[in-house]
Nucleic acid binder design. Structure first.
Lengths: 209, 209
DNA sequence: GCCGTTCTGGACTTGCAAGTCCAATTTTAT
DNA sequence: ATAAAATTGGACTTGCAAGTCCAGAACGGC
């Protein structure tokens, strides 16, 4: 696995990125190895050289690649959820990212396709979700520490709910083509956080720090 | 299309339901027409007799079938979102429904598969979402009219956010196998509604009832 | 009972996409 | 420089799944 010369590594990367593009265009089911081969200017033997497991292994590699992209596209805003301004900046980044992506979400399509056969893709998505949720939860704790939200809100649960809202917004966008649900989910979640303190203070909860 | 004798209609229904089961087991990609033929005790010619468009038309019919099931499984609770008790009963119904369904969501898998090639599946999902969201929005308006929530909350936006949370919870469940995110999304949304009135009253809104 | 229509069975064709193979070429190590 | 290892090209095989076809059975109106 590690025995890859720079040239080999470049070819491998070219294949993964090219496959990603082809899948974006044609969908997983329609994308054949020959399409990928043509689009990446490689040959059959190279495909199987770098991905001995064949098509499935290649698709899994593409899924990993897409998962990395998803998180990278949200930085640095995702790592900077320390103030309300930081939160709205992130919200806008996410919406814009998926607006640009349009109807087709390669990662969803890939995992829906692989999920049945290969357990590996579940692991890729699960890891992505854990990482993503952890970053959101960190942001919630910042608000928490700053006394900006109801201290009774559990950071992990809130983060899980926000993440679910995003995923659902994106999935719905795949059919409707609109980011309306994604925006509604994010805005509602932020409204929930913002207004939580008001209710808490009225109930006599302490407003720390 | 309408020229179907009872016997023919029964066979057609048997094919759709059988195909649904096969797809649930094997996934869309792996489910071949021969698998479906064997599982439904039919023949090739019947498949193409009832679905002249072949595999794709059959898959679309299955998607429609699954979409109907999704809504039916939530009734009558979904139509009864008039009180807080009604809302929590619905929340439990939804969670239980998806817990039973397990990791595999046939509708998501189908639409991810078809979405690329056939525009029809997008219509099926879009219609399902519209209907679903409309029912939720009606429930929100009930709370609204009863003065149970902040009157400034827009029913359609809130409903869109709740729907997104559900979809995302289900999608994440496909990878993790757990309904944790689905529950977090629903509970957070309900908490948002419940506590909204507190904030509103503090801001000078009337607290009715 | 007769005839047209609907429904059913299953063998057959066809096309294509995945995967194999081997030889040629380039890179890397010493 | 030279040999071993990594990389590349592309023709070839193979299997299988979608879709076609036609003949026969069951049904429905009159």
């Amino acid at each position: 696995m590690t025995g890859l010369t720079p040239k080999g590594a470049a070819t491998r990367a070219r294949i993964v990125e090219g496959a990603s593009a082809v899948i974006r265009d044609l969908g997983v089911a329609a994308a054949t190895l020959d399409d990928i081969r043509a689009h990446t200017r490689t040959s059959k033997s190279q495909l199987f050289h770098y991905f001995p497991g064949g098509r499935e292994e290649l698709l899994l590699a593409v899924a990993r690649f897409e998962a990395e992209t998803v998180l990278r596209d949200q930085q640095p805003q995702l790592g900077n959820l320390t103030t309300w301004d930081g939160w709205t900046a992130w919200r806008d980044t996410v919406v814009e990212r998926y607006r640009r992506q349009g109807r087709r979400c390669p990662l969803h399509v890939l995992t829906a396709h692989l999920g049945a056969t290969s357990p590996g893709s579940q692991a890729v998505v699960t890891e992505l979700m854990q990482h993503w949720q952890a970053e959101i939860a960190t942001g919630v704790r910042h608000l928490h520490d700053a006394g900006e939200i109801d201290p009774r809100l559990d950071a992990d649960t809130v983060a899980a709910a926000i993440l679910a809202g995003i995923q659902g917004g994106v999935v719905i966008q795949m059919s409707t083509g609109s980011t309306r649900h994604l925006e509604a989910a994010l805005d509602s979640a932020l409204d929930h956080l913002r207004t939580s303190r008001l209710g808490a203070s009225q109930l006599g909860a302490s407003r720390s720090r």
